[in-house]
Design a protein around this nucleic acid. Structure first.
Lengths: 224, 224
DNA sequence: ACCTGAACACCGTTCAAGT
DNA sequence: ACCTGAACACCGTTCAAGT
């Protein structure tokens, strides 16, 4: 009782900062997050944040990693019964889980696209894919490429949405300039439909193509 | 001779602004482009730019469109001899031309990823792909999806480079945390190799998968 | 240890003024 | 028409000061 210094608990924590920053990113976009605005939302002054994170960018990295952490990786666990791993099915389920996580937080995707860097959840994800593909019989060089190309497609689908890319303004699509874009302004209404259809079509094509490569790898065609 | 007002020609033009802005983006990245820095590189003061572009963002859009404009679209021209169009070969050649253009100017890719919007070259590109796919016999809904999924993959490969995403620091990859990432720090040395290999592997898989879909579309399997 | 206000060196953009 | 300097409302980050 003879010491009353600093009795009140800290106002801030890394977790609370990341949580509120994530909400701000979701609600108003990446550009809306300034240290002052974020601090105000947390009820403190701007420089306080620097007691918990070295830079503003480190906060955004943490927000991005929290999204990565929500991607399901359990489909990459080795089958308990010693059965052959279903790499195709696992890749399909994982791709959808990944895309769903990104679709819930589209505004942070550009940060995620910079790569795993030093983010634990991002690294865990890359590790799981690589491990599962080699376990399924893909040579290491192929497993690396599969991790990379799935990343291109999944991140690309989130960062480069097709439907969102067209403006909802008929006058932009002059038939003289763009003879086949007559319906493009309608894309805005059907964003989700179009992007989800394209994602599933592309993912199926990708996995079909990889299955072909897997087969010729394990059963090389006889030379004539 | 009795009027000497405004004899000297304008110091700035839209083209010169876009050219120098592009060089600045390539050399120092998107964040390095401020209106003051760009204006200084052009030998004028900051606000001068607003005589030629409404916002800084409009300048970046113009830089992005200049990159789109360098993508070859000639492979989508209808064959002169009335032969069946080779949609697969055209898609393959186009994808590589697109990727090459992005690889030359990686720093502007995030702006391109926002979509064609109102950018003429971006719209021309979308128009050409859609037109060529419908001409080759794909139903319109499929043609739209193909344009979208190719966009995901190509933009994704440029914005979400695999090799660039890992840091060149062994200590990050603790084998206890990431059992399969032991060689990850070596990716930095082989960036181009890895990303080019993954791009070609993924593109081939994608086109193989689409070919499968095209065949079942034109020769539906007999029901049993 | 953790928060504050003041300060520094920047931003994008507007605007009245000059030619 | 096109460029300028001054100004406004912001930035990210540092730092000495407080508890």
């Amino acid at each position: 009782m003879w010491r009353m210094a600093r009795p009140r608990k800290p106002l801030l924590s890394r977790d609370r900062i990341v949580e509120v920053a994530g909400e701000l990113v979701d609600a108003e976009g990446l550009d809306a997050v300034s240290t002052r605005r974020l601090a105000a939302a947390l009820g403190v002054s701007g420089p306080s944040l620097y007691n918990h994170f070295r830079t503003k960018d480190a906060i955004l990295e943490a927000v991005a990693d929290a999204v990565s952490a929500r991607v399901d990786l359990s489909m990459f666990d080795e089958p308990a019964d010693g059965a052959a791993p279903d790499w195709r099915g696992a890749l399909h389920a994982w791709a959808h889980s990944y895309r769903d996580a990104l679709a819930d937080h589209p505004n942070i995707v550009p940060v995620l696209a910079r790569g795993p860097g030093r983010r634990p959840a991002g690294l865990r994800l890359a590790d799981a894919v690589f491990g599962a593909m080699t376990a399924a019989g893909w040579p290491p060089a192929h497993a690396t490429r599969i991790g990379a190309l799935m990343r291109y497609f999944i991140l690309g689908s989130a960062v480069a949405s097709f439907a969102r890319g067209f403006v909802d303004d008929e006058t932009v699509y002059d038939p003289a300039d763009y003879p086949h874009l007559g319906q493009a302004h309608l894309l805005a209404d059907r964003r989700h439909e179009v992007d989800e259809g394209a994602f599933e079509t592309g993912l199926t094509a990708l996995l079909d193509g990889l299955t072909l490569q897997y087969e010729t790898l394990n059963h090389p065609p006889p030379h004539p």
